[in-house]
Amino acid sequence: MSSPRFPIPQGTLDMLILQILSLEPAHGYGIAQRLEQVSQSVVQINQGSLYPALHRLEQKEWLQAEWKQSETGREAKFYSLTRSGRKQLAVERKSWARLTGAVQLIFDEGNG
């Protein structure tokens, strides 16, 4: 815990998981590492909350899971996006873009 990191904004974890899985199927540990990498250690993700989130998304049928051999040769549970998961990702991306766009506008106005 060297540099101060942002706690992940509420509700964005699901979106990030969907985004990561939209590239390729991955297991839980893979997703955790990927999150760590892409957020460049800026965003702090509690790894403990990853698994409940995965199961929640699976329950909603946005994800499907399958036991497959992993890169180390051991069986791991691989998650991938379902069709409705893909749709959901599109929806969340759009609303995220609108939200950040709106926030940006407010900031721009303050500066201008």
């Binding site: 839980g28 540990y29 955790a32 698994y51 549970k77």
Partner: peptide, 16 residues
């Protein structure tokens, strides 16, 4: 059982 396996995998990989 599935969750157990999943979590064990995570921990083992991290330790490795």
């Amino acid at each position: 059982r599935g969750l157990d396996r999943e979590l064990r995998y995570h921990v083992d990989r991290r330790i490795d």
